[in-house]
């Protein structure tokens, strides 16, 4: 705590700033200790490919952006030359993004509809109970026979993953709409069901819908890498590909790349979320 006594508000600001700084330093310390342990572990393990060291991995990471790779843009069919890291990241995004966005839209729509409409809920609830526990990756067999394990197949698996997380976010959100708010709205002239959904249920469910979507961003990264281990092109495939050549440092480089890509999306979406939900 700060011991300054000139003005209390200054003291509070200084105190919280001090606390932040201490937290960042501790975090940095934790990272450094981890790097040290990793480095020592790598030095003392033989053969060296079992644990590639931080320096080798760093070098492999830089190499991802020092070389270029040509990829084919799906749908357009044109070819694109990018630094290797970005090229494979782009390949992943070509199925990650459509799968995530389509899965989220469908999941949110069905969640809202079922949460809002009792009869629809009665009809579909048992079906949801049965389909929900199936892990998205189990659908890989159908992805292969229906679409082939390429962008479309991988997008399908991501779709399944995004669908359920967003479904439950929206379903829970709409179910939790307070009856007091819908009562207030109906005394203020909201008559049609659809207006109630738009004016009360949707804004009221927005925090849970957005949390569902943010969760699905992370979950779909796990799923997309899983799908690529079966052969769809992208960063997940490159992890396997590099390890088949015993270039384990390159595998680590791709793992770090996935982590960074996820962090960027997560932070970006959190900022967006905060802007949308200023009222909370």
């Amino acid at each position: 705590m700060s011991t300054r006594t000139d003005t209390s508000s200054n003291a509070v600001v200084a105190g919280s700033f001090e606390g932040d700084r201490r937290r960042y330093l501790r975090g940095l310390g934790g990272l450094l200790v981890f790097l040290l342990v990793w480095w020592v572990g790598a030095m003392t393990t033989q053969p060296s490919y079992l644990v590639p060291g931080p320096l080798d991995s760093g070098r492999a990471f830089i190499d991802l952006f020092a070389t270029s790779t040509a990829i084919v843009v799906p749908v357009l069919g044109s070819s694109l030359v990018l630094p290797t890291g970005f090229a494979h990241l782009a390949q992943t995004l070509f199925h990650y993004l459509p799968g995530l966005l389509l899965g989220a839209s469908c999941g949110i729509s069905l969640g809202l509809a079922m949460g809002w409409h009792g009869v629809l809920d009665d009809w579909l609830r048992p079906l949801v109970r049965v389909l929900r526990p199936i892990p998205p990756l189990a659908w890989v067999v159908f992805a292969i026979v229906w679409f082939g394990i390429h962008h479309t197949g991988a997008a399908f698996i991501v779709f399944v993953g995004a669908f359920w997380i967003n479904f439950y976010g929206a379903y829970g959100g709409v179910e939790g709409v307070s009856s007091e708010l819908t009562d207030a709205a109906s005394t203020l002239g909201v008559e049609r069901d659809l207006s109630m959904l738009k004016l009360v249920a949707l804004p009221s469910a927005a925090p849970q819908v957005l949390t569902g979507f943010r969760t699905s961003i992370g979950r779909c990264w796990m799923i997309v890498v899983g799908a690529e281990l079966f052969g769809a092109p992208g960063v997940g495939y490159e992890i396997i590909n590099a390890s088949n050549n015993l270039a384990m440092a390159t595998s680590v480089a791709y793992m770090v790349l996935i982590s960074l890509a996820f962090l960027c999306m997560d932070v970006g979406f959190r900022l967006l979320e905060r802007r949308i939900l200023t009222w909370r």
Partner: peptide, 27 residues
């Protein structure tokens, strides 16, 4: 018939202005 609720029942995502305006916007 206007109603005032015990626990206010304000729309938390609307500002003071937005809450007061709610009924004026429908229809």
């Amino acid at each position: 018939r206007g109603m005032v609720f015990q626990e206010y029942a304000l729309f938390p995502w609307r500002t003071v202005r937005g809450n007061i305006r709610f009924g004026l916007d429908r229809p």
